[in-house]
Amino acid sequence: MNSADPKTTSAVSYPDLPIPAGGEVVEVAAGVYWVRMPLPFALDHINLWLLKDGDSWVQVDTGLVETSVIEYWRTLFETYLGDAPVRRLIVTHLHPDHVGLAGWLTHQWGATLHMSRTEYLLCRTLLSDTHKEVPEAAIHFYRQAGFDDESIGIYRAHFGGYGSFVGALPDSYQRLVNGDKFKIDGVDWEVIIGQGHSPEHVCLYCAEKKVFIAGDQLLPTISSNVSVWPLEPNANPLKDWIDSCHLLRERLPEDVLVLPAHGKPFYGAHPRLERLIAEHEQALQDLYEFCAEPKRVVDVFSVLFKNPVTKRTLIFATGEARAHLNYLVQAGKLQVSLDEQGVGYYRQVSSGVR
């Protein structure tokens, strides 16, 4: 294993570790192995983790349902896992790159699936949307955001795509809750639940190894998408996200090695969390000031995003913009009114952001 001590700096730093190629593993801590699988998106990879557990393995997250990913897993089974089976599969959350192959992998090994309840049930709900008609409530949600007919067409084409990347889940699972502790290879691991990016995101912390498997809850260079969706239009996931950043800042030691789902393992959890909080607070202040005059959801993209919103990013950008607007509405800083066409306009009702 190659590793490095954390540097004494306010910035994120990276241990000297090679990035694993497809079908390979890299040991990042004693008994903790890094696997990387491809994604067919702009974000072109996901990090997955294998934890040695005596004469078996615990796996964290799965990759998408995709031929190359399955072939890489077959290579790993033959080359690295040997006769030691995967007995437990832990899925951090319901997004396709994390849960996609859960059904296939548990079937391969006869493994038990471990997830939080909300993520498991919501995954099954989204899978049930495959091949269904777009609900009118969803069309209303995006019309209210200011979508024209072309944009509604983009959403219609997007709807139900979840099932393209996610296989059927096992019909039973083991529930994970915040504070759960269990042993892997004789060492305690603790479940820490994060919120905002997904409703009940499982993270894993091992105090003895000083390792934190973060999923998408803490990434080294990008901020995870925090969105409002038609299923719960008045949700406030951004408050959940900021609260979770504060929770992790208090819970994790400064020298913990963070194992993120994207990017490279890193040190510097505290400054990274502080920066994420500060960036969102600044975005909220900028958005509040921009809404001195009434604005639709689609009008605020330029304030929140550095890059232009394209057809490919429209749905996620809308969800994240709505998350920021909902935060300010529920903080009593903005109010929203609907015009005769049902389009929402947001404007200031007071000064500053609490």
Rank of each mutant, 00 (worst) to 15 (best):
G82S: 07
I139Y: 00
R296K: 15
D148G: 10
E27A: 09
V228K: 00
A4K: 05
C291Y: 05
R272G: 10
E250I: 04
A269L: 02
K239H: 05
D53H: 13
R74N: 11
S164K: 13
R88I: 09
V211I: 15
V191A: 08
S350Q: 13
E274N: 10
G179Q: 02
G263H: 08
E293P: 05
F305Q: 00
F182A: 06
L169K: 00
Q341M: 09
G332K: 08
G146D: 01
T79H: 11
V166H: 03
Y327I: 01
V12L: 06
P85C: 11
P199L: 10
E274D: 14
E200H: 00
A331V: 01
K132Y: 01
E150Y: 11
R175V: 14
S128V: 07
N47E: 06
K52P: 03
K52Q: 15
R296L: 08
A21D: 14
D149Q: 13
P271F: 05
Y72L: 14
Y205H: 14
A214I: 07
V69M: 02
G268V: 05
F165T: 10
L248S: 00
W49G: 02
Y327K: 02
K306G: 11
G263Q: 09
A235M: 10
G352N: 12
P135E: 08
E232C: 13
H158S: 11
T67F: 05
R175Y: 06
R272S: 10
Y155D: 04
G332N: 04
H114T: 07
K239T: 09
G342Y: 03
Q341N: 13
E250Q: 15
V177D: 15
T313H: 03
Q217H: 07
S3E: 06
A278L: 12
G179R: 01
L126Y: 10
L17T: 08
D185M: 09
F182H: 04
E293C: 09
L51A: 03
Y162P: 01
V228R: 00
D129R: 12
E289K: 13
A30N: 08
D188F: 06
A11S: 14
F305T: 01
W241E: 05
V86D: 01
G215S: 02
F165Y: 14
E133R: 10
Y205C: 02
Q341Y: 11
L76F: 04
Q348N: 12
R124A: 12
I152L: 15
H270K: 14
Q195V: 10
G63N: 08
T62D: 02
G194W: 00
P6L: 11
I46F: 00
A214L: 07
L218M: 06
Y162H: 06
P308S: 12
H93D: 15
F165A: 12
A21V: 11
S198W: 01
L219R: 05
H140F: 02
V211L: 07
P220S: 03
A207Y: 03
V336N: 00
F305Y: 10
R275E: 12
H98Y: 11
P6M: 09
A321Q: 05
L204T: 06
D148N: 15
L284F: 11
A102D: 04
S13A: 12
H45S: 12
D180Y: 00
V202S: 03
F266A: 01
R117L: 14
V91N: 00
Y14F: 15
V166W: 01
E136I: 13
T79N: 12
E250S: 15
M37S: 07
W57A: 03
R347Y: 04
M115C: 15
A111H: 04
Y205G: 01
S223M: 14
E289S: 14
I19K: 09
W241K: 06
A283D: 12
